[in-house]
């Protein structure tokens, strides 16, 4: 499959659009359906798609394991960190109103950041799981 030139070309065309779509879903989630979780899944899907066409090693080169593993952890930290920041600014845990001078603005800011956190962790985890599953048989075959 990796040698199929048509697929490769199509993939190279589609994958940027997928990522763009993910960003749209991520940031348009306030106004339409979507949000961090769905965006994370789409980002992961894009990379998985890449891996299926160009092979796992190529995908691993594009997005190395350690980055993925860092994503897995850092998304949760971003989310929980927003809560800690709101604590430090004198609010309750995850009270976004204190994040800006104006409560509504603070809410928007808080929602933005927690959605970013969700997206990072979700895409990281989905990718990591894919790497784990896909890499398994190869290792087994190698020895």
């Amino acid at each position: 499959m990796r040698r199929d030139i048509v697929l490769r070309v199509i993939a190279k065309l589609i994958i940027p659009f997928m990522l763009l779509f993910a960003l749209y879903v991520q940031f348009h989630g306030d106004f339409g359906p979507g949000g961090g979780f769905q965006a994370g899944v789409i980002i992961a899907t894009a990379v998985i798609f890449y891996a299926l066409i160009f092979g796992l090693p190529a995908a691993r080169q594009l997005l190395p394991e350690w980055i993925v593993e860092t994503m897995v952890a850092s998304g949760v930290l971003v989310y929980a960190g927003v809560g800690i920041v709101s604590l430090l600014l004198g609010g309750s845990y995850l009270d976004y109103s204190v994040l800006a001078h104006d409560a509504v603005h603070g809410q928007e800011r808080g929602i933005f950041w927690v959605e970013v956190g969700v997206a990072i962790t979700v895409s990281g985890v989905m990718l990591k799981i894919f790497y784990m599953f896909a890499g398994r048989r190869r290792d087994e075959d190698n020895g």
Partner: peptide, 20 residues
């Protein structure tokens, strides 16, 4: 005043830190 939140959040945060 925030002890109830910290009670859960601190162990929760420590897990991703460990993974990092």
């Amino acid at each position: 005043d925030h002890l109830p939140a910290l009670q859960v959040v601190l162990p929760l945060i420590s897990a991703p830190v460990i993974v990092l």
